[in-house]
Design a binder for these strands. Structure first.
Lengths: 226, 226
DNA sequence: TTGACATACATACAGTGTATGCTTACAGTG
DNA sequence: CACTGTAAGCATACACTGTATGTATGTCAA
């Protein structure tokens, strides 16, 4: 609540509305984000928001794109492998910071400026590394697939990373040995502390990058050219 | 509408309700799935559904798990690579058949019997191929990450695969060359028909499997053992 | 027949997104 | 200064949501 006769006359902006929406979604979950709660957060009635956003879908698209803009984009030059690893890490951390964003990206077609910038920089980096246009496109798709999918699984995994072994032990009774033998073996291993059960986005990413390196055309000597 | 004095006395079942829910979501989108529309689909008032499902979240969890059960699980024996490819293809096709499912999986923690079966069979196949428990877990996570992420991108890609070149040309004006040079180059290439722009889940998957094969411990000769 | 139980219905309530039609207050003109 | 056009915010209202609550109806067991 900021205005409402408090002498605050600077009008709201779309950006302020979207920032507030992200704040609500981060703090109380996406379900808590309604036009009324959003209005309250910026000190305005629900309907006044429509002066700055066209409807709620516009809000959702807007906050997704703002989140995508938080992702650090690879530098135009430098090693492509390091750039991809850095970009993947940044994307993963960003999506973990806003756990609702991944789900939103799923359920809507979104090609805002943030997403375009994100994709463009990535493909640019791969082209710079010598990949063909086509191969760069496929590579980007594969890397992003891994990031999105990995983050998804990390987000909706039912156990907390901290008290892992403990929770695995609790989970065990729900896994009859005759029906889920492998999951049971895995859970036992985690419960016993023989395996920490923690997944690393770098595992799959490393495999992908190794494979891509092998596909990369040999660099025509750039030393002389530029 | 099936009952309502029509002499139909067989009571509803949870399964029937969930099947109807999938039908609505497939045909009219997830937004069209309300307790009232679902009740109408099975010929019952909205509140009567609560005799068979505990609430709407239960419905959503239920239909996701039913969809996951549609995925063909790898056979217990046979080549692990072929099994993984088959499983990935089946999962991808299933998620495309129910485009709302991917988004739902994102936004909720779900470990129903379908998901457990799916994961268990996969890890079992990898264990059978000689991977350690830990490596099998990481491999499954990486493969699933790729499937989920790839399907996500395929689903929310704004252009139709059929009239690709045509749509790329339309899309071009939205890509100023100074801001999105690489995306623009890519789009031009597609518009000109030099590149079809179609992504294949097998590309990234192949890279992953190649890398995993290299990590697989050498098989202790099983010929004599069993 | 009597009762218990499962199933389905009717009503009601708080909360949702948003269409419509105000009021207010500032910016720019004369 | 007054006048007015316009952008911003407000209030009301509507159709729709999930679901709490209470009641009716049909089937089966004793």
């Amino acid at each position: 609540m900021r205005r409402q006769g408090s002498g605050d006359r600077t009008p709201l902006s779309r950006e302020q509305v979207l920032r507030a929406a992200i704040g609500i979604a981060d703090a109380q979950g996406l379900d808590a984000l309604s036009m009324r709660s959003l209005g309250e957060a910026v000190g305005v009635q629900a309907m006044s928001l429509y002066n700055h956003v066209s409807n709620k879908d516009d809000v959702l698209d807007g906050i997704v794109d703002l989140v995508v803009q938080e992702i650090e984009v690879p530098p135009a030059s430098g090693g492509w492998r390091a750039a991809m690893i850095g970009r993947a890490g940044s994307a993963h951390r960003t999506l973990l910071r806003h756990p609702w964003a991944c789900g939103l990206m799923m359920s809507r077609v979104n090609i805002g400026p943030g997403m375009l910038r994100y994709i463009d920089a990535t493909i640019g980096c791969l082209l710079d590394a010598g990949f063909s246009l086509e191969l760069a496109d496929h590579a980007r798709n594969a890397i992003d697939s891994h990031i999105y999918g990995f983050t998804l699984q990390a987000l909706h995994f039912p156990l907390e990373r901290s008290r892992y072994a403990e929770m695995a032990a609790q989970f065990l009774p729900m896994l009859p040995a005759e029906r889920y033998p492998s999951m049971r073996a895995l859970t036992i291993s985690v419960a016993a502390g023989r395996y920490d059960g923690v997944h690393d986005p770098g595992f799959g990413l490393g495999l992908l990058l190794d494979g891509l390196e092998a596909l990369r055309p040999p660099e025509p000597d750039r030393a002389g050219a530029g």
